[in-house]
C-alpha cells in the first residue's frame, strides 16, 4: 500500500491521506478484512502529526470504509460493489466499441471528455 502526500499542496493533509487510502482500498492494495497501519505508525512514517492521521481514519470510519476500534486498529470493511446498471452499461459500451473497432484509449478519452462536460 503506497501513500503519497504533499504537505505544500492546498488540500489539507488529512484529506490527502483519506484520498490515498480510498485509492489503495479501491485498487485492492489493501483487501477487506486487512488492517491499516496503526495511526501512530503511519504518522511517524509520513512525518505528520498523529491527530492528522486519526482525523483521516475517523473520516473513513464515518464513511463506513473502515472499522475503527480501540485495541483492534483500523480494519478495512467490505466495500459495496457498484450498482449493477454500471456493469451492464460498461458491457454495452465495450460491445459497441468492439463492433465499430474503436480502440480502448478512445473510449477512455470519450469518458473523460463526457465527465468534464
Amino acid at each position: 500500500m503506497l501513500i503519497r502526500i504533499d504537505p505544500r499542496g492546498s488540500e489539507p493533509i488529512y484529506q490527502q491521506i483519506v484520498r490515498e487510502l480510498r485509492r489503495a482500498i479501491a485498487s485492492g492494495e489493501v483487501a477487506a478484512g486487512e488492517r491499516l497501519p496503526a495511526a501512530r505508525e503511519l504518522a511517524r512514517s509520513l512525518d505528520v502529526n498523529m491527530h492528522t492521521v486519526l482525523r483521516a481514519y475517523t473520516e473513513l470510519r464515518d464513511a463506513e470504509v473502515i472499522d475503527l476500534r480501540r485495541g483492534r486498529g483500523a480494519v478495512v470493511l467490505e466495500q459495496p460493489t457498484a450498482a449493477p446498471e454500471v456493469g451492464e452499461a460498461v458491457a454495452e459500451l465495450l460491445e459497441v466499441a468492439r463492433r465499430h473497432r474503436i480502440p480502448l484509449s478512445r473510449i477512455h478519452q470519450a469518458l473523460d471528455e463526457g465527465a468534464q462536460r
Binding site: 500500500m1 501513500i3 502526500i5 497501519p37 512514517s45
Partner: peptide, 15 residues
C-alpha cells in the same frame, strides 16, 4: 522508480 516531487512524502506498507 516512484518519482517524488520536491517536498512530497511517501510511505509504503507491505505484508
Amino acid at each position: 522508480p516512484v518519482v517524488l516531487a520536491p517536498g512530497e512524502r511517501a510511505s509504503w506498507f507491505g505484508r
